[in-house]
Computed example of a mutant assay.
Amino acid sequence: MNVVAFVSIFFAGLLAGAEYAVRCGVRRPLAVLADQQHIELRQALIRSLRIAVPAVYVPTLATAMAATVGNAGGRGFDFQCAGMAALLLWTVTTFAGTVPINAGVLAWSAGAPPHGWQAVIRRWERLDNVRTWAAAAAFACFLGGAARLASG
Rank of each mutant, 00 (worst) to 15 (best):
M1V: 13
M1Y: 10
V3W: 14
V4C: 05
A5K: 04
F6Y: 14
V7C: 05
I9V: 15
F10Y: 07
F11C: 08
A12V: 03
G13S: 01
L14W: 09
A16L: 02
G17N: 07
A18H: 00
Y20M: 14
Y20A: 15
Y20E: 02
A21T: 12
V22C: 05
R23N: 14
G25P: 03
V26Q: 02
R27L: 12
R28D: 12
P29N: 11
L30H: 01
A31E: 10
A31V: 01
V32H: 11
V32Q: 10
L33V: 08
D35V: 13
D35S: 11
Q36I: 04
Q36G: 07
Q36N: 06
Q37G: 07
Q37W: 08
H38R: 14
I39N: 03
E40Q: 12
E40I: 09
E40K: 08
L41V: 13
R42P: 07
Q43F: 04
L45T: 06
R47K: 13
L49S: 10
L49C: 07
R50F: 03
I51R: 08
A52E: 10
P54L: 04
A55I: 08
V56M: 13
Y57W: 15
V58K: 04
T60W: 08
L61R: 00
A62F: 14
A62V: 14
T63Q: 07
T63F: 15
A64Q: 01
A64D: 03
M65Q: 06
A66M: 09
A67P: 08
T68D: 05
T68K: 06
T68M: 10
G70R: 08
A72G: 04
G73K: 02
G73R: 07
G74W: 06
G74L: 02
R75N: 11
R75I: 14
R75L: 15
G76R: 06
G76N: 07
D78M: 09
D78C: 06
Q80V: 00
C81N: 03
C81G: 12
A82N: 05
A85D: 08
A86C: 12
L88W: 05
L89E: 02
L89D: 04
W90C: 12
W90F: 15
V92F: 05
T93N: 10
F95K: 04
G97C: 09
T98Y: 05
T98P: 05
V99W: 13
P100I: 00
N102I: 00
A103G: 13
A107Q: 13
A110E: 00
A110M: 01
G111K: 05
A112W: 03
P113K: 04
P113D: 09
H115D: 12
H115V: 15
A119I: 02
V120H: 11
V120K: 12
V120L: 11
V120M: 07
R122S: 12
W124E: 13
E125P: 02
R126I: 13
L127Q: 13
V130Y: 06
V130F: 09
V130H: 02
V130I: 14
R131H: 10
T132Q: 01
T132I: 02
A134P: 01
A137F: 07
A138H: 05
F139H: 11
F139G: 00
A140E: 09
C141Q: 04
C141H: 07
C141K: 01
F142D: 08
F142I: 05
L143P: 02
G144C: 08
G144M: 03
G145L: 01
A146I: 02
A147Q: 01
R148M: 15
L149E: 12
